[in-house]
Design a binder for these strands. Structure first.
Lengths: 274, 274
DNA sequence: GGAGCGCTGTATCGTATGTTACGTATTTTG
DNA sequence: CAAAATACGTAACATACGATACAGCGCTCC
């Protein structure tokens, strides 16, 4: 079975005329970057004319040049999205035996690779400088994450509320929300209409939204001030929220650090109350 | 120093207007592939208009869109040409930048190293062969994990109950519990007396207890049929439940697989009801 | 509450890009 | 060695892509 374009070329290069063979060799030499550039650049690099490049991709079975480029891009995307595949051949330090765990660890590394320290710091600062209230809510499976985060934040600062129960209950809380407030939403596939509606309402009231979602971005991203896109794919019937969970913990830690002066006193007080 | 476009975006995203920020977040979420496609596709994915995309790349300092794309391609080429740099830098010397993440990843590896496949399989089997009911409960900060697990298990089998609310509420549920039932408890430091008391009562009634705890083992371990000890130490004011979270997800996956025949039908039915 | 500013989308434009037709060169075959 | 077939490049073409002008809108700040 031929799965990628490089193999396809290797398979058919024998039947190609001289010019197209030069095109093939040029592409293989710096695969696949040249193929992502324009026909003119490709042809110049190969030392042939534009039509030769087009005949080349036609011989590979593509209807036109853009289709060929899309195919290359899909291939690249697949490589980039699953670092596991890359490290699959040499089972480097992994070898834990559990593909589930390996995928989860990869997800976390990927998630944090796309997440700058600055972005996290910004969100943490926004949550720490508590000019207003903080609301948290989640979807069917992600609401526990909202609860987890709320449980921690509520310890180190006042005015932290988890929105539970029916949709109608949340909407009643909208009346309390304004420009100075922050709404943290967890929403991954399949995205819940009720959450989207709620986010829109809150956005209209000027509430700043922090969204935890998957890499395909919940429609709530339209209204969000900050978006955290985590990786959720694992070899299971379910999506994994573990990466988002770790981001949430990191954020909790960052907020705690920023509130250290205030927070430490608060925590001591609370301990005293128990 | 800013070396790649992702950092550049993180640096300037704070100063961007709403539309351009959505473009930025969309690009980051599936970096960098969207940026290699046409302006029209990019704008559609971000839910903004084409000019907004162009203003976005202009704000990043590029003269025009093709120049922006070339820059992305160069970046990609650099990554692909030296896979060594990519797999050498981050993993071993903790180059991810976040000590929090590194500690969490270590915790997971350690947790699974001390956790045999057989042990997981045993617990999964016990949860899957549903002769009785399944109850889940957690402590102050770990109860969300119980909820998370309950939310999933409830989809694939009946008689799954999360014990919420006041301690007195749980105790009333004891009357429903017997030898054929399973109680999943999450309890990490500081261990809660109320949970210990409850676990003891349940144990006396013959309930099989599955305990998720930290490496120092909650006193509930005395009564537990199965104990999962996760690592919780991270450089933060709080303990991390991430490792236990991943174990929970793994367990959910295992139970789902065992119930595949039954479960698949149930899930389809549920989807139909939505 | 009103005026000014900044952001965003619609519609239009110019152009670079992929595509195709055709003539010339090169190789192959009888 | 001649004739035909195939391959290749030049040049003209059409399309789709990026770029821009402009108007509507919301927002902030007096």
């Amino acid at each position: 079975m031929i799965s990628n374009i490089a193999e396809l070329i290797a398979d058919r290069i024998g039947t190609m005329p001289a010019g197209e063979r030069r095109a093939a060799q040029t592409l293989i030499a710096s695969y696949p970057m040249i193929g992502l550039k324009t026909v003119a650049e490709f042809s110049a690099a190969a030392g042939v004319s534009s039509p030769t490049i087009l005949r080349f991709v036609a011989r590979l079975g593509f209807q036109n040049y853009p289709e060929f480029q899309s195919s290359l891009q899909d291939e690249l995307a697949a490589q980039l999205q699953s670092p596991a595949t890359r490290t699959l051949n040499p089972p480097s330090p992994g070898g834990t035996g559990s593909p589930m765990l390996e995928a989860t660890l990869d997800n976390m590394r990927e998630t944090f690779r796309h997440l700058s320290d600055k972005q996290l710091a910004d969100i943490a600062t926004r949550l720490a400088e508590r000019r207003g209230k903080t609301f948290l809510i989640g979807g069917r499976f992600t609401d526990p994450l909202a609860r987890y985060m709320a449980a921690h934040l509520a310890v180190i600062q006042p005015d932290v509320f988890h929105l539970a129960g029916q949709e109608s209950m949340w909407r009643d809380r909208l009346i309390d929300m304004g420009k100075r407030d922050v709404l943290v939403i967890f929403d991954i596939r399949r995205y819940q209409d009720s959450l989207v509606r709620f986010a829109e309402k809150a956005h209209q009231r000027g509430v700043q939204i922090v969204l935890f979602t998957d890499q395909w971005l919940s429609p709530i991203a339209r209204f969000a001030r900050h978006v955290i896109a985590g990786r959720t794919a694992v070899p299971s019937a379910w999506d994994s929220s573990a990466a988002l969970f770790v981001v949430a913990e990191t954020l909790i830690g960052a907020v705690t650090r920023q509130l250290e002066a205030d927070g430490a006193r608060r925590i001591r007080e609370m301990e005293g109350l128990r």
